[in-house]
Design a protein around this nucleic acid. Sequence first.
DNA 1: TATTGTTATACTCTATAACTATA
DNA 2: TATAGTTATAGAGTATAACAATA
Lengths: 136, 136
Amino acid sequence: MRELARTFQAFNAYDDEHIRQLGLTAPQFDVICTLGNTPGMTMGQLAEKTLVTKGTLTGIIDRLERKGLVRREVPPANRRCFMIVLTTEGDRVFEEVFPAHIAYLKQRFSKLNEQELEEIRLSLRKLRQLFQPIQN
Amino acid sequence: MRELARTFQAFNAYDDEHIRQLGLTAPQFDVICTLGNTPGMTMGQLAEKTLVTKGTLTGIIDRLERKGLVRREVPPANRRCFMIVLTTEGDRVFEEVFPAHIAYLKQRFSKLNEQELEEIRLSLRKLRQLFQPIQN
DNA sequence: TATTGTTATACTCTATAACTATA
DNA sequence: TATAGTTATAGAGTATAACAATA
């Protein structure tokens, strides 16, 4: 039981350190990954996917906008909402930084063989289903 | 690879929600768990165990002290440092709330059989060793 | 009236660096 | 001088609830 919390803590520390080196915070990185390879998303959709309240998301998007990584577009059909879209620079970050981050994590995984990886993958999937009843 | 991040995100959301219901934050809960079943610890030791800088820890301990869950004791031998100790109330929280939290998590795990649990345990241990080179 | 976001409020956590007190 | 913690500073994330604009 504690195993899960400790593993998570260790992973998170490792993960977070690299994200910060890239000049982003974990929630900001999460938003960029969520927006990557999509035509954009409203604040509401984005808040739901990233598990953040809408009020909190406003601040995160403000900061990403200030960094020039996303922009708010007003769809003519419904002027109450925004489409949050990656800018060219934001897309570049997604295309370059995201794989770099994966590669960074892969360094550690390379110590395992294929069978071990498959077992871990299976275990994680089971765990995730346990804690994430609502699947996307 | 993403499996790991998503799983932990789901777990964390579930975990955090319960901790907040108990009136604590994750770092505060972490401190109480770390202090449980110990004679106390200096700020430095505690900061190291909880992976937090000493400046940050000061604030966390201040808030726990205000809640009456820990106290700072000055050891006569070295008046530069404090021993951070659980109060009676703090110990009660550790003794009652910690198992309650475990039970809360167990609800989900009860859906798995013993063999699955063992496989998951093994996978998590491998993962942890991957990301936590410095073991305590 | 209902929906979509923003703003106001109030905390907590976060790191860094300068500082105080003790050793 | 070195060590142990605190304080100052500055920012990010967090939720909640009140608000404005649009539908």
